[in-house]
Every structure is written in C-alpha cells, then in structure tokens.
Simulated assay, not measured.
Amino acid sequence: MKTVLWATLTANGNYAQSGPENPPKKEALNDFAAQAKAAGNFIVGRKTFEGMQDPSRVSQDEQAGDNGPFAGMDIVVMSRSIQAIPGLTIVRSPQEALDYLQGKGYQTAVISGGADIHNSFLEQDLVDEVIFNVAPVFEGKGLNLLIDAENYRYRNAQLLDCKPLGGGVVQLRYSLER
C-alpha cells in the first residue's frame, strides 16, 4: 500500500499552525479534500479530527463526517484516549491504521493532520510520498517534521511534481526512499 503524508508548511519551513488569526488556506484545504477523495480515506490524529468538527474553526462544508467533502470516506483516527466514535475507526498506532485500510482493500492511504501523527509515521519509515503545500505566510514559532529526532538521519527524496495551487500556495510532491 502506498502511503502519502499530506501537510501544509509555512514559507519559512515550519509545520503550519492554523487558528483564528491564521486560518488554513482554502486552496490547501481543497487539495486535501481531492487527495482524500481519490484515496477514499485518510488517517488523522485526535486533536486535528476534533478541530475538523469544531464549527467555530471550519465551515459546515469542511467538517468531517456525514456531510461535506468527506462523506462516505473511511476516516481513521489515531488516538490513545478515544475509545469509540460511531462511524469512525479508532486505532492506536500507525501500523494498525495501515493494516486496517489495507484489509479493506485500499491501494493508497492519506496521512493528514498533526505533527505528532506525521512524525510517528516518518519515524517508523512508513511514508512513501509526501505532499507539502507551502502557504505564503511566515510563522515565528512552529513545529517540525522529523524522521529521527535523536540521530539526525537523512532520507533522500525525489521531486515528483511542483505546481501552484492558487492564492500563493505552492505544492511540492516528493517520493521518499524506504
């Protein structure tokens, strides 16, 4: 199964932190919806999933669940604290998430939402491809995506595509050696 990590970065290389003063760029959100729809699924962390449900942060059309662009998709939430949510699959680890989706016959898994979940997949060498949407904003304090925080490993990447999405957002797509 091909695994695709999808993330938005700031122009100065931080993992983008969205909020009321810096909402996610519409072009990046539309791209995520298209990537998830093409795969039929996405894996997300608990905090990001809860943010996707918060009507004060996202419009009704952007919420995950029965309505909007994610209707009918397999949404896998990775959490150690949530026990069950009707209609969702809750897993405890990256490998459990991939095993679940592979068992359902998916060819591609999209990993989204949260530096912690992204770093856990990267650290376990479970990512085949990354899609970075670079937003036209600089952020003073941000999080980083890491493959190995302690040993400073390097992993070669090959640029597959580079394209503007509009609104100043540029998408970079890389394959990762595994």
Results as ranks from 00 to 15, higher is better:
Met1Gly: 06
Lys2Gly: 00
Thr3Leu: 05
Val4Trp: 02
Leu5Thr: 02
Leu5Ile: 04
Ala7Asn: 10
Ala7Pro: 02
Thr8Asp: 11
Thr8Arg: 11
Thr8Leu: 11
Asn14Pro: 03
Asn14Gly: 10
Ala16Lys: 07
Gln17Gly: 14
Gly19Leu: 06
Pro20Ile: 09
Pro20Thr: 07
Asn22Ile: 06
Asn22Ser: 12
Asn22Thr: 13
Lys25Phe: 15
Lys26Leu: 04
Glu27Tyr: 11
Leu29Phe: 09
Ala33Phe: 10
Gln35Val: 02
Ala36Arg: 04
Lys37Trp: 02
Phe42Asp: 02
Gly45Thr: 10
Lys47Gly: 13
Phe49Trp: 14
Phe49Cys: 05
Glu50Tyr: 04
Gln53Arg: 12
Gln53Thr: 14
Gln53Glu: 13
Ser56Cys: 05
Arg57Lys: 14
Val58His: 05
Val58Tyr: 04
Glu62Cys: 12
Gln63Ser: 14
Gln63Met: 15
Gln63Thr: 09
Gly65Lys: 10
Gly65Arg: 10
Gly65Trp: 03
Asn67Asp: 15
Gly68Trp: 14
Phe70Trp: 14
Phe70Ser: 13
Ala71His: 08
Gly72Cys: 12
Met73Tyr: 08
Met73Gln: 15
Asp74Gln: 08
Asp74Ala: 04
Val76Thr: 07
Val77Arg: 00
Ser79Arg: 07
Arg80Met: 01
Ser81Asp: 00
Gln83Trp: 00
Ala84Tyr: 01
Ala84Trp: 00
Pro86Trp: 14
Gly87Phe: 10
Gly87Asp: 11
Leu88Trp: 06
Ile90Asp: 06
Ile90Trp: 00
Val91Phe: 15
Val91Lys: 14
Arg92Leu: 12
Arg92Asp: 15
Arg92Ser: 15
Ser93Ala: 13
Pro94Thr: 04
Gln95Lys: 13
Gln95Phe: 08
Ala97Gly: 12
Asp99Arg: 01
Tyr100Ile: 06
Tyr100Lys: 06
Gly103Phe: 07
Lys104Ala: 01
Lys104Val: 02
Gly105Tyr: 01
Tyr106Leu: 08
Tyr106Ile: 07
Thr108Val: 12
Ala109Lys: 08
Ile111Met: 04
Ala115Asn: 06
His118Ser: 05
Leu122Arg: 03
Glu123Thr: 10
Gln124Gly: 02
Leu126Trp: 06
Leu126Arg: 03
Val130Arg: 10
Ile131Pro: 12
Phe132Gln: 09
Val134His: 07
Val137Tyr: 08
Glu139Tyr: 01
Glu139Phe: 01
Gly140Glu: 03
Gly142Trp: 02
Gly142Asn: 03
Leu143Arg: 14
Leu143His: 13
Leu145Ile: 04
Leu146Cys: 14
Ile147Leu: 15
Ile147Met: 15
Tyr154Ser: 14
Arg155Leu: 04
Leu160Asp: 06
Leu160Trp: 02
Leu160Lys: 11
Lys163Leu: 05
Lys163Asn: 10
Pro164Val: 01
Pro164Tyr: 05
Leu165Trp: 08
Gly167Val: 05
Gly168Trp: 05
Gly168Asp: 01
Gln171Glu: 10
Leu172Cys: 08
Tyr174Asn: 07
Ser175Asp: 09
Glu177Arg: 06
Glu177Tyr: 08
